[in-house]
Computed example of a mutant assay.
Amino acid sequence: MTLQLLSLTLAYDDIRFFGSVMFTDPNHPDDKPVTVLIDHSDEPPWFRLTNVDPEGQDPTVPAMVEADRIMRFLLRYTPDRIGRTQADFQQP
């Protein structure tokens, strides 16, 4: 399944954030977009993901994989936005 990013929204305060990421399937453009909610966490990886679809919670679901990848990328390059440092986001 190939996903296309439709929307990414994040809101920050000094150490917390929340938001959502929406994807469309280019092969099925009329289908409802897949939405993953994002919330901060006090433990690595410093965020939690929740698929709006209750059956899509498995971390291997394509939307969850892609949302995880996006969040790790964003937080790795802007750790100060959530009160963290580069050391909190070591590369595997």
Score class of each variant (00 low, 15 high):
residue 2 T to Q: 09
residue 2 T to F: 00
residue 3 L to N: 15
residue 4 Q to N: 12
residue 4 Q to T: 12
residue 5 L to I: 13
residue 7 S to E: 15
residue 7 S to V: 01
residue 7 S to W: 04
residue 9 T to C: 01
residue 13 D to Q: 09
residue 13 D to F: 04
residue 15 I to M: 06
residue 17 F to I: 03
residue 23 F to M: 11
residue 26 P to I: 11
residue 27 N to C: 04
residue 28 H to S: 04
residue 29 P to Q: 07
residue 31 D to W: 04
residue 31 D to P: 01
residue 32 K to R: 08
residue 33 P to C: 13
residue 34 V to N: 10
residue 34 V to H: 12
residue 34 V to W: 07
residue 34 V to D: 14
residue 38 I to C: 04
residue 38 I to K: 10
residue 45 P to K: 14
residue 50 T to P: 01
residue 52 V to C: 03
residue 54 P to G: 08
residue 54 P to I: 10
residue 55 E to V: 07
residue 56 G to Y: 09
residue 56 G to W: 10
residue 56 G to H: 08
residue 57 Q to S: 08
residue 58 D to P: 02
residue 59 P to F: 04
residue 59 P to Q: 05
residue 59 P to I: 04
residue 60 T to F: 00
residue 61 V to H: 10
residue 61 V to L: 02
residue 61 V to N: 08
residue 62 P to V: 10
residue 62 P to N: 13
residue 62 P to L: 07
residue 62 P to M: 10
residue 63 A to N: 12
residue 64 M to A: 06
residue 64 M to I: 02
residue 65 V to C: 05
residue 66 E to Y: 00
residue 66 E to C: 02
residue 67 A to F: 05
residue 68 D to K: 11
residue 69 R to N: 13
residue 69 R to D: 14
residue 69 R to G: 08
residue 73 F to D: 14
residue 73 F to T: 09
residue 74 L to A: 07
residue 74 L to Q: 13
residue 76 R to W: 01
residue 76 R to L: 00
residue 76 R to N: 07
residue 79 P to W: 00
residue 80 D to W: 03
residue 81 R to A: 09
residue 82 I to E: 14
residue 83 G to Y: 04
residue 84 R to H: 03
residue 88 D to K: 04
residue 88 D to W: 01
residue 91 Q to H: 08
residue 92 P to H: 06
residue 92 P to L: 05
residue 92 P to Y: 03
